[in-house]
Simulated assay, not measured.
Amino acid sequence: MATAIVLLKIDHNKVTGTAEKLLEIPDITEVYSISGRYDLLVMIKCDQIDKIESIVTDQLLKTDGIVDSETMFAFRSYDKREGGRAISVD
């Protein structure tokens, strides 16, 4: 499964509303309010990596309140529930 992590800077008056709106987008599985340079961390998981590009550019980044973003792709997951073994995310 293709996985992307998107870090977002949000207009500080719109953090909660933006987070709630992002959860309405299919394939966005989690949204976290975080500390640091960014305000929200968004997890996208879907069957095809090409679909992530469409989700990010055509839907996510058009959401009101987003000021800046950084997108990262996950290559491998290390899950404690899997005994620390590496799990492919492709």
Rank of each mutant, 00 (worst) to 15 (best):
M1P: 01
M1H: 05
A2E: 08
A2C: 05
T3Q: 14
A4M: 03
A4W: 00
A4K: 01
V6Q: 07
L7Y: 14
L7W: 11
K9A: 12
K9G: 08
I10K: 10
D11E: 13
D11G: 07
N13T: 10
N13W: 01
N13H: 10
N13R: 10
K14F: 10
K14N: 14
K14E: 10
V15E: 06
G17E: 12
G17F: 00
T18K: 04
K21D: 02
L22C: 00
L22I: 01
L23T: 06
E24G: 05
I25K: 09
P26E: 11
D27I: 00
I28Q: 01
I28K: 06
I28L: 07
T29Y: 02
E30P: 03
V31A: 03
V31W: 01
Y32D: 05
Y32N: 07
Y32L: 13
Y32I: 04
S33E: 12
S33V: 11
S33R: 14
S33W: 12
I34W: 03
S35Y: 15
G36Y: 06
R37G: 10
R37D: 15
D39T: 02
D39V: 03
V42P: 06
M43W: 12
M43Y: 11
I44G: 02
K45P: 01
K45S: 11
C46K: 02
C46A: 04
D47T: 01
D47K: 04
D47W: 00
I49D: 05
I49F: 05
D50E: 15
D50G: 13
K51F: 07
K51S: 09
I52Y: 04
I52F: 06
E53M: 11
S54F: 12
S54H: 15
V56I: 15
T57K: 13
Q59Y: 13
Q59D: 09
L60M: 09
K62L: 13
K62T: 13
T63R: 10
T63Q: 10
D64H: 12
G65C: 05
G65R: 10
I66E: 03
V67S: 15
V67A: 13
D68E: 15
E70F: 15
T71W: 07
T71S: 07
M72V: 08
F73K: 06
F75Y: 12
F75C: 07
R76Q: 14
R76I: 15
Y78K: 01
K80N: 10
K80T: 13
K80D: 08
R81C: 02
E82I: 01
G83A: 04
G83Q: 03
G83M: 08
G84W: 01
G84A: 07
R85M: 02
R85E: 01
A86S: 04
A86K: 01
I87T: 03
S88W: 00
S88N: 08
S88V: 03
S88H: 00
V89N: 00
